[in-house]
Amino acid sequence: MSGVETGEAVAFFLLAPLSVIGALGMVMARNAVHSALWLVLTMLSLGVFYIVQAGPFIGMVQIIVYTGAIMMLFLFVLMLVGRDASDSVIETLRGQRVVAIVLGVGLAGLLGLGTYRATQGLAVTGLDEANKAGNVQGLARLIFTNYVFAFEVTSALLITAAVGAMILAHVERRRGERVGQAAKMRERFLPGNYPGPKAGPGVYATSTSVATPAKLPDGSPAPRSISPILPTRELTAAEKANKHTEGR
């Protein structure tokens, strides 16, 4: 099973440009959500590469863990932080971007060319042997023999990460700051507070768009029903009209 087969070559030449485009888009996108989605594209392509190169386990892990879990978690965090946070385009160091691009392309060219020349005519060996007892079994054999210490010590890394997240992100509430359930309920039903859920967008309106505000009973739009991060949209006359609720 050495050498490159047609299917493998087709898959590579289809996905390689996509993964590079994803990586470039990730770096260049102004919006953090777009960046994350570009990165998903790159990671999915990488996952397919791994599978094509006879590493199905690592390929599936790449797709399920990285793309599925970590990137989606990342998107949740971005959404919580605020979708409209975007990069400032002001360079703090003059000419830094140009220098970075020139050096980056130079390094990539150097490494790419070097690797290309070094791997010309290099025979692919050891793949069948590594996958002889099955791909997952082969990996398990390595993880539980040669690399068992590295594998176990990774737990130290996870504990450190958890402790670090607690230190840097968690503010302990002091005594007296804790509010009980009874006090919370009392506060909720205080005069001047609206205890019910707020209307969602589009309620009683003639459009299903999330950018259409709900209508109050008197027919006027309810500004609190649309998310503040959405761009304000000019409504058409049909959308402004009150919805027919009678006589149909």
């Binding site: 210490f149 590295a150 010590v153 990774t154 450190t160 670090g164 230190i167």
Partner: peptide
């Protein structure tokens, strides 16, 4: 004694340092 173990060790000793610098 191998580069992979060395890499994991590198991360294990670096990550706490990054954290402690912020405190």
């Amino acid at each position: 004694n191998d580069l992979l173990t060395m890499f994991v060790a590198l991360e294990v000793f670096s990550l706490p340092l990054y954290l402690m610098c912020a405190l």
